[in-house]
Design a protein around this nucleic acid. Sequence first.
DNA 1: TAATAAAATAGTAATCATTACTGATTTGGG
DNA 2: CCCAAATCAGTAATGATTACTATTTTATTA
Lengths: 125, 125
Amino acid sequence: MKNYSKQREAILTVLSQTDTHPTANWIYEQVREIIPNISLGTVYRNLSQLSQDGDILSINVGDGFEHFDYDTSPHAHLHCKKCGCIHDARLENDPLAKVAKKTGFTPETTIYVAYGICQNCNTNN
Amino acid sequence: MKNYSKQREAILTVLSQTDTHPTANWIYEQVREIIPNISLGTVYRNLSQLSQDGDILSINVGDGFEHFDYDTSPHAHLHCKKCGCIHDARLENDPLAKVAKKTGFTPETTIYVAYGICQNCNTNN
DNA sequence: TAATAAAATAGTAATCATTACTGATTTGGG
DNA sequence: CCCAAATCAGTAATGATTACTATTTTATTA
């Protein structure tokens, strides 16, 4: 089935210790400090596998990069069009899953992305 | 500012007449039946512009393609992991926008994507 | 511990949706 | 009609991601 690998463990460790919704390449750079000769392909393969297994979240905000999130609970992602940041916001429940089920769809993961201007860019620009 | 072009009009016409959340390439193929020598780059440029202006919606479900939607109202997108289809579901309100505003974020567009198995794949497979 | 098959890896090459570029054409205002 | 800005067709370039291959690691069984 699924064997242990220290590469996958390091990837999960790095991802669990940030709240920046990093890209595969950012994770690669960080993991290299733990396993210097890890391959970029290994990072991509593991992230893809972990996301398929539901262990992590894959967020696509349309900036040309796939972003990853260690927090798999349903929550909102606020993507700033100006600075590109992605911040989290808690949701009291999962209204998307509720609506989906009502139409006969069986949801496994729900993704919420808001596009706009973040608080920081609003006040400083 | 923004000049009229029959290419952009044809793109909007095609997009408005489908509910399949097409890709740029699909739209290109359709528009070619109206304007045979239209360029794929023109389709991409207009779709990107229209989506930036808020005239259409850009949906990214992580299948490697950007999808477009003529309906800009906040609604749910149900993406089947099996057949790849994207269906709509109405939302009574816009809970994501509400939560975003509460944190100081100014939302312009909100995207809801549920991943799972559609009704059709559930019953037929 | 040794043997074995499945899983995973490093390194590199290939893919392909999307973007960038260029010189020609179209649009809209005066 | 004139002109500047906008748009276009056609083509080349980009770059994030995936595919490939020979080697190494893992987990199981004897």
